[in-house]
């Protein structure tokens, strides 16, 4: 049976207010705000600039992963409208921000996805596509590996584990097998192949309520196992900690893991991770053009600080470069253990 989004299920946690209430009322020994206050980055965490321009183009996805922080799925239809796409690409093209990071849902399902990639690449940006892999096995999108290679796009794809049971438990039945097929298609055009310069990054996040294993050792395991058992290659692996929001929060609640998991994140708070957390050098653009410190804040409807411009339509990078970051208790997810960000471990 296809899993429904929290929205389609009319689940209370489909409401961002309910998610925030849940996270704010957990009996933690210390709020994240206080934890940051006790570090060299306190009392308020601030941005260091904008080096990554990340846009979330919509909620529609061909998968419905159990842990999805976007609550994306085949039943969602919301996509970034044309006026926001136009404004977003104008800002990107007029800026010196080096990295253009496209995410979703499945971003490839946006009607103007290829135009976004082409214009980003033409503007000299390093374009990243957060691709779920299985989309590449559908007839309509089978041409994308070659398209990505042409524009030197970095393909960033989730694969929580190097075997079928771990992957399918989190991402749905049959996803592992299709992901391997998609990896073969990417390898065939040079992705992950040494010397090609085409970067294929895998993202591994825990299949459950625990912290990711050390990134380097996981990368070595994945490389060995995927090559040996399936003959596929990738460039690098990054680990990401599951963020206690949206569908993952719903699973934590349902499995009785919410408090133990949050306590684990709090107990593993590592000040050494803070310097490189993604919110400090990223701006996240929402479907409606609103600006956020990261994709997680976007999903909790926590816009950028009031002193910074609020939407893509009133972009002012000088103000965004030095903005105060909006933090809540979910931010423990990025600062636990080895740290976690869209670029992987930070410590």
């Amino acid at each position: 049976m296809t899993r429904l989004s929290l929205v389609a299920d009319r689940h209370p946690l489909a409401s961002t207010d309910e998610q925030k209430r849940r996270l704010r009322t957990l009996p933690l020994v210390k709020s994240f705000d206080d934890a940051i206050g006790g570090t060299a980055f306190g009392p308020r965490l601030r941005a260091t600039g904008v080096e990554v321009f990340q846009i979330n183009v919509g909620r529609k996805c061909n998968q419905a992963c159990h842990h999805c922080h976007v609550d994306a799925g085949p039943d969602r239809t919301e996509m970034m409208p044309d006026d926001v796409v136009d404004a977003t690409l104008r800002v990107l093209e007029g800026s010196s921000i080096p990295t253009f990071d496209i995410t979703g849902g499945a971003p490839e399902l946006h009607e103007r996805f290829e135009e976004m990639v082409e214009r980003g690449a033409r503007a000299g940006k390093q374009v990243m596509d957060r691709c779920n892999l299985t989309i590449l096995r559908t007839q309509r999108y089978a041409h994308l590996p070659a398209f990505f290679a042409k524009h030197r796009v970095e393909v960033v794809s989730s694969l929580p584990y190097y075997d079928e049971s771990g992957t399918d438990a989190q991402r749905g039945d049959g996803v592992f097998e299709k992901s391997i097929e998609a990896m073969r298609a990417l390898n065939a055009v040079g992705y992950g192949v040494e010397g090609s310069g085409l970067v294929f990054t895998l993202v591994a996040n825990p299949v459950g309520a625990f912290l990711p294993a050390p990134q380097k050792s996981m990368e070595a395991d994945f490389k060995r196992q995927l090559k040996r058992k399936h003959g596929v290659e990738f460039t690098r692996l990054i680990t990401i900690t599951n963020m206690p929001i949206s569908r993952y929060l719903e699973w934590l609640d349902r499995s009785g893991n919410t408090e133990p998991y949050m306590n684990r994140l709090v107990s593993a708070f590592n000040p050494a991770t803070v310097a490189a957390v993604m919110c400090r050098n990223t701006i996240s653009v929402g479907m409606d053009g609103r600006l956020f410190d990261c994709d997680f804040n976007q999903m909790l409807d926590l816009g950028v600080h009031a002193a910074a411009p609020q939407t893509i339509f009133d972009w002012d990078q000088r103000l965004l470069d030095q903005r105060e970051i909006v933090v809540e208790n979910h931010c423990y997810g990025c600062t636990a253990g080895q740290g976690s960000s869209c670029g992987g471990a930070t410590a």
Partner: peptide, 9 residues
């Protein structure tokens, strides 16, 4: 818990 966090299955 520790073995999971060290990447064991």
């Amino acid at each position: 818990n520790d073995a999971l966090e060290k990447g064991a299955n």
